[in-house]
Computed example of a mutant assay.
Amino acid sequence: MQRPTVYAVLACGALLLATTACSGAKAQPPLDRTAPATPGGVTAQAGSATSVHVMWSPSSDDTGVAGYEVYEKGAKVKSVAAPDTMVDVDRLAPAKAYSFTVRARDRAGNLSAPSAAVAARTPAAAPDDREPPTAPTALRGRATGTGSVALSWGRATDAGGGVTAYDVYQENSRIHSVPGTETGTRVGGLRPGTVYTFTVRARDAAENSSKDSNSLDLKTAAGPGQGPSTAPTGLTATARTSGSGERTVLLRWTQPRTGGEVKEYELYLNGKFATTVVWGAAPPAGPATYSFTVTDPPGTRYSVKLRAKLPDGKWGDFSAARSVVAPR
């Protein structure tokens, strides 16, 4: 008569263990099965006889876009991590027509529908062309809002077959490309109330790039609630070599008006923090100067910018960037 009771206790114990195990398990988040929005604004421009520059507008997703995939006639040729929205497709054949689409990818691996297809044709090869185009001239522009600028420049020339593209650079990083037939463009995706430094280079079918155009500083319009700029102004960077052979870069700038003393600056080289500049005594009343030694090979290019530590302890706006080449 006791055997059923024993079985009942064992059954309850098994149920108790199962319940405990379940209660200790972590709840799994719901599966993300929603694909990102289809990228728009796709453009494709041949940059040389063997490459095409593909650009598009940022996509959106409920959990965030992780990257983009570029296809040529249905075959994936490039993957790009967000937030980048452009890429060069290389190793193409000269004088050939291509068709590109772009798909957005979220963190769960969901892919958007393909964008509208855009066509591009590479120019004929110029295998013996080693002469770069002339530099674009008279770069000028204006801010067109809180997040964009309009640029224009004088046409470059190329003896080996013509200019195929113009590349827009911001602090030595290419951010935009347009066909060689165009001498102006709009650059978007910028931050409000920020100083940007632009240059333009011409490129030919053999991938030869010109020297930089003149540099141009433009400040986007301030956003709602933004106060006056706290950026150092008038920054110059001069490469020097002393009689003993020491190679240095001398910086000079006008300090921002902050309502108090600025005793500390952060120096950035090529977009990365390099060092902190601290005055040992009272800050200078006029223009500030600072020099640093360079040990990289002669001809190395640096992009330099500064920002001040404000009297309230926060870091202010960045100055415009300046390019300088390590001296010989």
Rank of each mutant, 00 (worst) to 15 (best):
residue 4 P to M: 02
residue 7 Y to H: 08
residue 11 A to F: 05
residue 12 C to L: 14
residue 14 A to S: 03
residue 15 L to G: 04
residue 17 L to P: 02
residue 17 L to Y: 03
residue 20 T to Y: 14
residue 33 R to C: 01
residue 42 V to Q: 13
residue 43 T to A: 08
residue 43 T to M: 02
residue 44 A to V: 02
residue 51 S to V: 10
residue 51 S to I: 04
residue 53 H to P: 13
residue 59 S to N: 03
residue 60 S to N: 11
residue 62 D to F: 06
residue 66 A to W: 01
residue 71 Y to T: 05
residue 74 G to A: 01
residue 92 L to Q: 04
residue 94 P to L: 10
residue 101 T to H: 04
residue 102 V to G: 06
residue 104 A to V: 08
residue 107 R to K: 12
residue 114 P to H: 15
residue 126 A to I: 09
residue 131 E to C: 11
residue 138 A to H: 15
residue 139 L to T: 15
residue 140 R to N: 13
residue 144 T to A: 02
residue 146 T to D: 14
residue 146 T to K: 12
residue 153 W to G: 11
residue 156 A to K: 02
residue 157 T to D: 07
residue 159 A to F: 03
residue 161 G to C: 15
residue 164 T to P: 06
residue 165 A to T: 03
residue 165 A to F: 09
residue 167 D to L: 10
residue 172 N to D: 05
residue 177 S to M: 15
residue 185 T to Q: 06
residue 187 V to A: 02
residue 188 G to W: 11
residue 191 R to H: 12
residue 193 G to K: 03
residue 200 V to Q: 10
residue 202 A to G: 11
residue 206 A to Q: 08
residue 215 S to K: 05
residue 215 S to R: 01
residue 216 L to K: 01
residue 224 P to D: 08
residue 224 P to C: 10
residue 226 Q to Y: 03
residue 236 T to V: 08
residue 250 L to K: 01
residue 251 L to T: 06
residue 252 R to T: 14
residue 255 Q to F: 07
residue 255 Q to V: 08
residue 256 P to Y: 04
residue 258 T to C: 06
residue 258 T to S: 06
residue 259 G to C: 01
residue 273 F to S: 05
residue 275 T to H: 05
residue 275 T to S: 07
residue 275 T to D: 04
residue 280 G to P: 09
residue 281 A to M: 08
residue 287 P to C: 08
residue 289 T to A: 10
residue 290 Y to F: 13
residue 290 Y to H: 09
residue 294 V to Y: 01
residue 302 Y to T: 09
residue 302 Y to W: 02
residue 302 Y to D: 01
residue 304 V to H: 10
residue 308 A to D: 04
residue 308 A to E: 05
residue 310 L to A: 06
residue 318 F to C: 04
residue 328 R to G: 15
